[in-house]
Amino acid sequence: MSVDIRPADAAPGRPSRQALSALLYRRGRLRLAGLLTAPAAWLILVYIAALSALLITALWTVDTFTGKVSTTWTLDNLIQVTTDPVYQTIALRTLRIAVLVTVVDMVLALPIAFFIAKVASPRWRGVLVVAILMPLWASYLVKAYAWRNVLAEGGLLEWLGISSPGYSEAAVVIALSYIWLPYMILPIHAGFERVPDSLLEASSDLGAKPLATLRLVILPILVPSIIAGTIFTFALTLGDYITAQIVGGTTQMLGTVVYANVGAANNLPLASAVALIPIAVIMAYLLIVRRTGALNNL
């Protein structure tokens, strides 16, 4: 009964694989390259290439006879989008809806997230997080149509004896607030989880009433989480066109304009120019947020 004991470096199996592992261990740059090549290529393709294409297309025109995009360079689309009162009105309305949705979601998400993270028992916490996520399992379209059934004339709201907003901007705000709410709750909930209970107790211990604790301790610590949430709700609302059509009726948003120009009007360059507006708005928002120093503590 002899037992075969070999030294580890002569272990049976795949010496080539071991050599590769050893090589990667010694060469840090090679390891990094292997790790990042695929995702970096993907990012360049998606972000840089797609965005550049968008910007370039906005500088072209459509041949009115053939309906084909002609690669003649012009600033007409950008000028039209920024100066035409119709586009200005739509842009301002979209911005207003996005701000309202963000504010409504923030007001709703803060107490819900606080309850889940700090009040509910650990067993309930999991259940509630799943409950928050559950609407995301349902189709976006189904939820939008469900809200139409509630809000439209002759819908559930009127049946309950409450005056209905009908197909309107208000209906769009209500429906979008509902649809994007989880994207606001989740980052704020994560933020609350990171605030130790002892901080809230310390504040109270030092004489702060609950509102003072909220203002001086909770909100400042949660600012990065709240901003993360607002970026979601704000950006998602700026780009929406389906809910606007389903519950908004004739309420035009930037998304619906893009959609109409790509489809019915067959004017891809103008659609690109319109699509640049939300990008510019979001960039401006991020710059403002950065300037306030709110992201320094991320």
Binding site: P196, L206, A212, L216, V217, I221, N297
Partner: peptide
Amino acid sequence: VNTVFQDYALFPHMSLIENVAYGLRV
């Protein structure tokens, strides 16, 4: 009564002087 917590529970977003002045501030 006031408490010194086991994990100290200092407010991370405030400087030391703001932390100490907190009780007076409220």
